[in-house]
Design a protein around this nucleic acid. Structure first.
Lengths: 223, 223
DNA sequence: TGTCAAAGTTAACAGAATGTTAACAGGATT
DNA sequence: AATCCTGTTAACATTCTGTTAACTTTGACA
């Protein structure tokens, strides 16, 4: 299946150039001309990678990147910054904001493509684990299905993400702050009691014994 | 052990808003209305985190940040910048000056608080070895498990921290004051007897022989 | 050996942290 | 439009840690 790439850039000429070259390489392309639009498209299309111009009116690239990275759904999306050479320290701020790479203008399509391929191949090695299987527990990201002890169910998204996180490292204690930032993202403002409620709902389904509370710290999943 | 936060902002309304919300969350707040004052208060109170408005007369936020970061005593203090959206690339200069995060005005208290908590929790994660293993003793921060001589248990937080500290250097004598500041923090006021009680509880679990008292000095963990 | 500060011990308490339930808003679906 | 479902918050209940106080024991030193 073709990898999806979102190009965010206000200069239509550059968009066209990139689009042409990327599609020739078999990528599926989307584009947006400003930060706000970019976030919308990203949420909608869930691209594998986003090419983000730093210089943009309104919501600039860095801020956009931050917003994107704060969405749990897009947390693993790769981001490449496009930057004019003059903008000296942009890469510093960019990496801080969670960028995976940056490329200086003028863009040479060949360079861009080789960088993109390099980055996308990282993904294979790293995360994108879509299935967890420990003992009688099976959690499948693709189908959002969970089965444990002959019980099967599909969890709502947030519950699923939370369980997936905990079960990704059985026995490891995840502290509440860490859970919040990983499942809910850093920018959201949810009361931390929200975690308890979700834990409650998960416990109702997978059984109380499976999730253990470490008071003052957080929760852990046990087999 | 309330974390100390210094708010540097010339608009008194914002100071009040932030102060109100932060104190509600249990933070101890100080404030300063300009850069010079900020440095003074910072040196004096040694806050854990500083919220710094970028736009200030005289010594602006970025310059103030530099000065602060140049003081060894304050080098590890976290800094969050407050910036109006209009000041486009301020964050670049800000990060360069050593900021840890920045937030755009208007400030939403909840967002601010979740960022603050995220940042403060970073510190914890950093300088902590997560596993101690000496002979038949295993203490694992990740799982909060302690096992010794075929006995396993999960300790409450304070007991865990205390045992973890002592066991981090077997045979080393930790003086009471040192234990207090490391486990309880510097700005709390707990009665001295509290340590004994915790030692007692730990001894009940790991065995009396493991923790030895050095009268007039403190305690040490022996294998 | 007697004295006194330091540490041990126990129980009781307060408050923090979490559990639990219900209600509600907003989005998706029918 | 009516209904369902999710995510969130609020309100209240419950559990358990951390701390204190009061009392006892230990051990160093005169």
């Amino acid at each position: 299946m073709a990898k999806k790439i979102l190009i965010v850039e206000d200069d239509q000429d550059i968009v066209d150039l990139l689009k042409y070259n990327l599609e020739k390489e078999g990528f599926k392309c989307y584009s947006a001309s400003n930060g706000a639009e970019a976030v919308g498209v990203a949420m909608n299309k869930e691209p594998d990678l986003i090419i983000l111009d730093i210089m943009m009116p309104e919501l600039d690239g860095i801020e956009t990147c931050r917003v994107i990275k704060s969405k749990p759904k897009l947390h693993d999306t790769f981001v490449i910054f496009l930057t004019a050479r003059a903008e000296e320290y942009s890469e510093i701020a960019g990496f801080e904001a969670g960028a995976d790479d940056y490329i200086t203008k003028p863009v040479k399509p060949r360079v861009l493509i080789s960088r993109i391929k390099a980055i996308l191949s990282r993904k294979k090695d790293q995360h994108s684990i879509s299935k967890i299987q420990h003992g009688d527990l099976v959690i499948d990201r693709d189908t959002f299905k969970v089965s444990i002890q002959n019980k099967h169910f599909t969890l709502p998204k947030k519950e699923f993400e939370l369980l997936f996180l905990l079960a990704s490292k059985p026995d490891k204690v995840f502290r509440r702050e860490s859970i919040l930032s990983k499942v809910w993202g850093t920018d959201v403002s949810v009361v931390d009691r929200t975690i308890d409620v979700h834990i409650r709902k998960i416990r109702e389904k997978v059984g109380d014994e499976k999730i253990k509370t470490i008071k003052g710290v957080g929760y852990k999943f046990v087999l």
